[in-house]
Amino acid sequence: MSLFALSPLAARLTGSDLLATLRTFSAFTRAAARQQAEQRSELLAIAFGTMVDVFARISIWRSVYHGRQHVAGVTEAEMITYALIGATLLSHWDGALIVREIGKAILSGQIGATLMRPVSFPGALFAEQLGPRLLQFGFVCLPVITILSAVYGIAPPASLGHGLLFLVYIVVSTTLLFLIAIFFGLLSFWVLEAHSLEWFMRGLTALLSGGLVPLWFFPPVLGTVAHALPFAWITYHPMACYLGQNDLLESATLLVGGCGWVAALAIVNHLLWRSASRHVTAHGG
């Protein structure tokens, strides 16, 4: 049985196994992207909605910065960039919808059929989510950034090194958001209330990822706690790197920390999925 690369068991795969796994993964991703591309009106609505969301964030920062040079060492221009890039490339994806998908699959019994597939359910789900995500990068995020940056301006990365690190941060951010969603989704095998888990995840992500408000504006205690939690790598740490709030060494160290969270969550999810699979067999799906 081939497993997707996210699983820790991927390390045991031979070269040809890994290639076959990547091919399967890519097929899932392409199929999901094609499906999304067919729904043009939906894509247009998403683009328009994202534009409204980013515009609201920019309006907030312009309003609170009115007449101030900088707050907590951050300027208005940097906050506009934070809103523009953070709300598109990093926190635009509603990861909580994955929790809903898993919940639906469990309630409908469809999850039983996934056990017969030669791929792991979380891996297939990631591939299916990644397709539309990549499509939206190109057809939603980049146009919104282009249009709004032409109006409000956008700060470039602090340095070439910060820019390159930021690209890796995007990968870590997307993977972490997915893994967190899978974690909450898999809990619904025991809680059976995916809808509630979805809302718990949404509440935690809204505050702790720094999606709307960067952690440097948080009260000290809350900020310290939020800095260490994996949610911070979804938007806050990547944007702090882009804006040069940390030097290159610190940014790289934090990136390693993010990779550590990816590895930890991948292992936890793998164990949860293994346990959940037994759960499904016990009840006959």
Binding site: V71, W199, G203, P219
Partner: peptide, 29 residues
């Protein structure tokens, strides 16, 4: 009850973000 608690938690998270802005900047508009 779980649905009530979780949805309340979800909204509280979003509202807390707005509180952080007002706590830091003193006001909004």
């Amino acid at each position: 009850v779980l649905a009530w608690i979780s949805q309340g938690f979800g909204y509280a998270g979003a509202f807390a973000s707005i509180w952080v802005i007002l706590n830091r900047f003193g006001g909004l508009g």
